[in-house]
């Protein structure tokens, strides 16, 4: 790793202030992706602004609209244990990484990084969540802007994620066998006004909504409504672990399974 200092502010406003001191300062949340990246010397921050000491962005609650609101600094293990009101979300959190990773990695860190194979982006997009930052609310549909790209500005910090709770939902993950990230992960959520289907792991553009499936499922929420369907293979990731065609096929399979298993 290159040399850097670590600051551990206690409030969001202090963190934002520190981030604004230099373009070379970078926020550090759970660090489960950032630290391996730093080890490879792929990033050279001047200061890391650790968010792990900020109590106000940790925890899970319910707002007046019935949304599950998760502090950005909440680790995956705490979401898995504490988001019982949204079982599909809790189940997704329980599938990220491994137990030790889940005790450090955070929802805010995952969404800010927007790894194309990460699990959380599919939940946020599939639920139509709102990503709350230190200065605005961003709808999930506007937030994800391609692989590792988000609507966040420099120095902007996610503070909370608000998830509307669907009638039924399920996340189906087919793991990439080495990294155990999603080779394909599909989050299906059935709301009163329609179905959302978000896919991670598959596309070169990062997490995306499979709108054809959403339309079919909004009319008929059953796996058979998607019989034989899969998204086009064009633009799907093709690598050691599977071709674009295979990933496209898996999106169909995982979506049908998610519908079948949705609670």
């Amino acid at each position: 790793m290159y040399a850097f200092d670590i600051e551990r502010p206690a409030t969001v406003s202090d963190a934002v202030k520190l981030l604004k001191e230099s373009d070379e300062n970078q926020p550090l949340s759970g660090g489960q992706t950032l630290i391996p990246t730093l080890k490879q010397r792929l990033a050279a921050p001047e200061k890391l602004i650790s968010l792990t000491g900020i109590g106000e962005i940790k925890g899970i609650c319910e707002d007046d609209a019935g949304r599950i609101c998760i502090g950005a600094g909440t680790c995956h293990a705490d979401v898995a244990a504490g988001a019982g009101k949204y079982p599909a979300l809790a189940a997704l959190a329980a599938q990220i990484g491994d137990p030790a990773v889940r005790n450090r990695g955070t929802i805010g860190g995952s969404l800010a990084n927007n790894d194309p194979s990460a699990c959380y982006p599919s939940a946020a997009l599939g639920s139509g969540a709102v990503i709350v930052t230190n200065n605005r609310d961003i709808a999930a549909d506007d937030y994800f802007q391609g692989m590792f790209a988000t609507a966040l500005d420099e120095g902007e910090i996610i503070t909370e994620v608000k998830f509307p709770v669907p009638e039924k939902a399920c996340y189906m993950k087919f793991v990439q066998p080495a990294s155990r990230f999603a080779l394909v992960g599909v989050f299906v959520a059935k709301f009163a006004d329609g179905v959302r289907v978000a896919v991670t792991g598959a596309s070169e553009e990062g997490v995306f909504r499979w709108t054809e499936a959403e339309e079919k499922l909004s009319g008929d929420f059953s796996a058979s409504a998607l019989d034989g369907m899969s998204p086009p293979a064009d633009g799907m990731i093709s690598d050691l672990h599977g071709s674009g065609a295979y990933r496209a096929h898996l999106v169909g399979v995982m979506t049908r399974r998610a519908v079948d298993a949705a609670l």
Binding site: P177, A178, S179, D239, L240, H241
Partner: peptide
């Protein structure tokens, strides 16, 4: 080398 870490080499 494409499988250059445990991210791509499956143990």
């Amino acid at each position: 080398l494409l499988s250059a870490s445990y991210m791509d080499y499956t143990m």
